[in-house]
Design a protein around this nucleic acid. Structure first.
Lengths: 233, 233
DNA sequence: CCGATACTTCGGCACCGACCGAAGCATGCC
DNA sequence: GGCATGCTTCGGTCGGTGCCGAAGTATCGG
C-alpha cells in the first residue's frame, strides 16, 4: 500500500532529478508537512502536475502522506531520506540556502489558537501536546497516540471524565497534524475533552464568528501553573 | 577547467538518475579508478555513449579523470561524492550489493611486475612506491610527487645518480596510476632511475617478448633487505 | 611509418516524461 | 442542497536526452 521499495540508484536519482520534484523535496527538508497545493506553488507548477509528482514520490517511499479533510499533507517519509537529500546538497557546493516561504499571510488569531473540529490547534494546541508529552501524560512516539496510566490520573485530576471518554466509539487519543504549526496536536476523545475542560474553566473563549479562540487572563495563569505553557499572545 | 560546480539538487539527481551513469558510479564506489572502456562495459553501453556520460559526470565535478597514455582513468572526485552515493544506496533499501567485476582475465606475469614505459609497475611497482612513501623517501600526498631531502640521500646511497637525474627536463618524481593495481607507482626521472638501478643490480630481469619482468633470487633478498618488500611471486 | 587500440565528436533517430487544459471526485462551509 | 476549494485522472503536445553508427584524434607496438 504505502511503499513498493524495489528501487535502484538510478530510480532514486531520477526521482530527485526533476526540477519540480527537487524543489518540493527541498521545501520539505525541515521536516514540516506541506499540502499538495503548497508544494505545487513551491515548485511553480500547476496542481495537476504536482499531483503526479507527489504520487510518484509517495509510491517510491520518499514521501509519506496524511489526509486532513480535503487537504493532503506530505512530508519526508523518514530521516534517512532527509539525510540523503542533505548529503546531495553538500555535493551541490551549497551555494544559497534560501528558505522557501510557502505560507501566505494568514490570520494571526487563527495561528495562535483555534478549534480544529472539537479540539484545540494552533500555537496553543501544539504547546499543549508538547507539554503533555514532556510530562509523560501522552505518548505520540508510536503510530497513534497513547495516554499513560499516570497520564490518565493526571487528566482525571484536571477535571476530565476519563471513564466516560473511554466508553465512546471514537478514537481515544490521536495525533492530528496542525496546518499552521505543521506539528501534531491532540485530537480524538482526549483532545475534545481537554478543549471542553478549558472552555469550562474559562481559560479560553471563542472569538466571535471565528474558529479562533482567545486565552483569558485566568487561562494564562492556569496554563502556566498546570502545564508550564507561557502563552503570550 | 576541472569543475564548473554550480549544481542544484535536481541536476545532481538527474546525473545519477540514468541507469548507465548509475552503474558506472556504483562500479567506482570502492574508490578504484577504471578506464572509460571498462566503465562502458560495466554499464552495458557502447564506448561512444559512455564517453558522453563520463564527460557530463566529469564537468559536473562528480568524477575526476587521469590520462594514462591512451587510457583515461575515472574515479569519484571525492569522498563526499562517495558518501552521497552511499546514502542514496541506503534509501534504495539495499537489496543486492552484487559487485561488478570489470577486469578480464589478464596475464599474471604482467600483473606481478612489468615496465611502464621506463619505470616499474604492477604489484612490485606499487609495493616499491608504498615502501618509499612509508620510509619518507617520497611524498605522494600532494598533487605531484616529492623526494624528501633524506630521501635524496637514500636514493643516492642506493646507487642512483641523483645529481644527473635532477638536471633532466622531464618530470622528476611523479605518481603514475597503475592499471592492474589501480594505485600509484613511481614515474618520472626517479622512477626510471630506480628501474634502471634494479636492472643493473640484476634484482629484476625482463621476460622475453614481454613488458613483464621477473624478480631474481638476488632481487628477492635485496628488496626484502633494502625496502622490506616480500615479493613472493 | 603502419596497424591496432582507446577514446572522442558528430549526426540522426526514437522514446520517455514533464507539462497543462479539461473534467471528475471529495470535502468543507453556509 | 448548492457553491467553493483541494486534489486527482485523463489525453495530447513537445522538448530533452539516451542511444548507436560512422568518422576523427591520440597513443602504443612493432
Amino acid at each position: 500500500m504505502t511503499t513498493v521499495n524495489a528501487l535502484n540508484l538510478a530510480e532514486v536519482g531520477s526521482l530527485i532529478g526533476d526540477q519540480a520534484r527537487a524543489q518540493m523535496l527541498t521545501a520539505l527538508l525541515d521536516g514540516r508537512a506541506l499540502t499538495a497545493g503548497e508544494l505545487a506553488w513551491c515548485a511553480g507548477i500547476t496542481p495537476q502536475t504536482a499531483s503526479g509528482h507527489l504520487a510518484k514520490l509517495q509510491t517510491a517511499g520518499l514521501l509519506a502522506m496524511e489526509k486532513q479533510g480535503r487537504h493532503r499533507y506530505f512530508r519526508l517519509s523518514s530521516p534517512t531520506v532527509a539525510g540523503m537529500l542533505e548529503s546531495m546538497q553538500v555535493v551541490c557546493a551549497v551555494d544559497t540556502p534560501k528558505r522557501i516561504r510557502p505560507e501566505s499571510r494568514m490570520d494571526a488569531d487563527l495561528r495562535q489558537a483555534r478549534t480544529c473540529y472539537d479540539h484545540l490547534a494552533g500555537v496553543l494546541g501544539v504547546a499543549l501536546a508538547d507539554a503533555l508529552a514532556e510530562r509523560a501524560v501522552i505518548d505520540f512516539s508510536g503510530d497513534g497516540g497513547l495516554v499513560t496510566s499516570a497520564g490518565r490520573d493526571f487528566l482525571d485530576g484536571f477535571g476530565l471524565d476519563m471513564a466516560k471518554l473511554e466508553k465512546g466509539k471514537r478514537h481515544f487519543c490521536r495525533p492530528c497534524l496542525d496546518w499552521s504549526e505543521r506539528r501534531h496536536h491532540i485530537a480524538g476523545a482526549v483532545g475534545a475533552g481537554l478543549a471542553d475542560r478549558l472552555f469550562d474553566l474559562k481559560w479560553i473563549e471563542r472569538i466571535k464568528d471565528s474558529r479562533a479562540v482567545r486565552v483569558t487572563p485566568a487561562g494564562r495563569k492556569g496554563l502556566q501553573a498546570t502545564f508550564g505553557i507561557d502563552h503570550s499572545a
